[in-house]
Write a protein that binds this DNA or RNA. Structure first.
Lengths: 336, 336
DNA sequence: ATGAAAGCGCTAACAC
DNA sequence: GTGTTAGCGCTTTCAT
């Protein structure tokens, strides 16, 4: 063993030369291959540790035609729900010794396509994606399938059937919110929903409406749509300017909740005396307010864990299409 | 040109065989090398487009010993400031045709080391990192330097001098907040600060205190420390239970602001009648409240852009150590 | 203007 | 139990 100059990249070749054995023996020793003599393994491992050997990921990937990187695409990172989803994925990813490439599509289907291409070119081991409102199930997805790259759609998923989807229980969540309001005997409910193009919005609206039609058809239901904090604020103010004065407001998401609560503060409404609030939420935002907001929890973190399980399954050969749903639960605040 | 079977990976070799020219010619043609005849380039490009050729990143990286991936490590993704930083980096990264590996250290120095190793093994082109409170400037960083991988520290940076740092103007921000309170004639100020181990906290506390000592030494200053939403809430409640009743509260971060505002709501304090609030913030949280909170803006997004500029510089050969600071500004709400 | 050939660092089938 | 060899897909030097 001669001294190896610092700063130099250590390869299997260098180790093999120092030890006067072949490259393949070194490779096998490091992988703890049963064929290799224990004493050889020892020598190799020692030197590898001493020299601080680190395998060249690119060479391995090229050779084995695999990779240890997952890809993830979301419309925006800056979203309470996606944070926790990403955190979960990132945790699991690291446990597996993989890493994670995160990309944002900015609600732009063209950028989303670009991002898919980046992931394809990086030959990622799998993709997690929450699509934009304008995404169509196009060639890009098919091409990935052809390459054998598994795609798990989550949260905002295509209507298309034959793909892997992992969603929160949208229908149950909206129904649970509706029935909570019904039980509290609310008669005039303002429901503020997100982008009507998204299947997530369609599902939640449908379930919310049907719950009332079935269980409390006499309730007056006012539907509004808001794509942002500002619009949710505006819609709430409008409802009051128009003299509607609902006795409860349903917020489909955290973003909408923040807008509604800003309006509630501006209008100096007392919660729950003047108006009740209920939301579907990831859990952080409702706790910022006093009284705390009652919400149906749909955990991004839990969804991330579920999505990863599906991905791991897929990679281990269970490649059939599956449609998983994460259960939800009511977290009682004092806003009703 | 014969029909190529679908689903098959297209390589330079396949194109060269179809066209009966050598691999190197195809490679050069695709790179628009001046030596290659225009007609050859045309043919090659046409077929490459037709077959939807995509170069194998791993082969390129292995051959050229470069990569088109940046790495980013933060204590937690779920943080308003880091979101916007990451968004900026992610945008620039994509513009360059690079991608971004994002890792969380969860405020754990050991995981941070692991993450650095992952990035090293992925031979990333550069690293952006905001360190944990317990990070020491160790071998890991030196090893990266030796490998020629540039590191840009941002936001939470080591005290150590000879590294690239990009920070918000902590001192100016805290001084600006202090002087705003002094101008408003506040006499009893509760300052809630983050983790005292971090240089960011030290700088902000020092500047805040010194501003008062210099410009309004008669002011009563109460310092408290909070590492989370809950602790900020608790510290504020404590101050009131102890009968301190400050006329202004300074919040060093968004997280602290959310805790303080929860306490304000619980204690049924009127802002700014009963108490004034000022924060150092990324800009989103202060707008959730009514009245909107006055804050000193330190934009994560702008910091990201600045950090990326530094990285691009570095990669283009300007490798000298630099210490950049992002200016801040006061955004007036109605909370003072 | 094009081709041949070497090699980046690694794995794995096949020898012995 | 260890070595030899071929090759993953690409770039690049050197020849022609």
């Amino acid at each position: 063993v001669y001294l190896v100059q610092m700063h130099q990249k250590i390869t299997l070749k260098k180790i093999s030369e120092s030890l006067n054995i072949s490259i393949s023996t070194v490779s096998r020793a490091l992988k703890n291959h049963p064929d290799i003599a224990e004493i050889t393994k020892q020598k190799v491992r020692e030197l590898a540790t001493l020299l601080d050997y680190e395998p060249n990921t690119y060479a391995i990937n090229l050779r084995t035609n695999t990779s240890n990187v997952f890809g993830l695409i979301v419309p925006v990172i800056s979203n309470f729900f996606y944070h926790s989803f990403i955190s979960a994925i990132e945790e699991e990813t690291r446990k597996l010794g993989y890493s994670l490439i995160i990309l944002q599509s900015g609600e732009d289907a063209a950028i989303e396509q670009e991002n898919l291409k980046i992931l394809r070119m990086n030959r990622v081991a799998g993709i997690f994606i929450s699509i934009t409102a304008n995404t169509r199930y196009t060639d890009s997805f098919l091409k990935l399938e052809e390459l054998g790259i598994p795609i798990i759609f989550f949260d905002k998923v295509p209507d298309f059937e034959a793909v892997n989807k992992v969603c929160v229980a949208d229908i149950e969540a909206a129904a649970l919110a509706a029935n909570t309001l019904i039980k509290a005997n609310k008669k005039k409910v303002l429901a503020i929903l997100g982008n009507a193009e998204l299947s997530i919005t369609k599902k939640r609206r449908k379930a919310f409406q049907e719950s009332f039609e079935t269980n409390a058809p006499e309730t007056q239901l006012i539907l509004a749509s808001a794509h942002s904090f500002e619009e949710a604020l505006l819609q709430t103010e409008l409802a009051y300017k128009d003299g509607i004065r609902p006795d409860a407001i349903f917020c489909m998401s955290d973003e909408i909740l923040t807008g509604v609560m800003k309006a509630v503060q501006l209008l100096k409404l007392q919660v729950p005396k003047d108006v009740s609030i209920i939301a579907i939420s990831n859990g952080f935002i409702p706790r910022l307010y006093e009284p705390e907001i009652t919400y149906v929890e749909t955990s991004g973190y839990d969804l991330g864990k579920l999505a990863f399980t599906r991905m791991a399954d897929f990679i281990n050969g269970r490649t059939f299409v599956q449609n998983l749903t994460l259960p939800c639960r009511l977290v009682a605040g004092k806003s009703i």
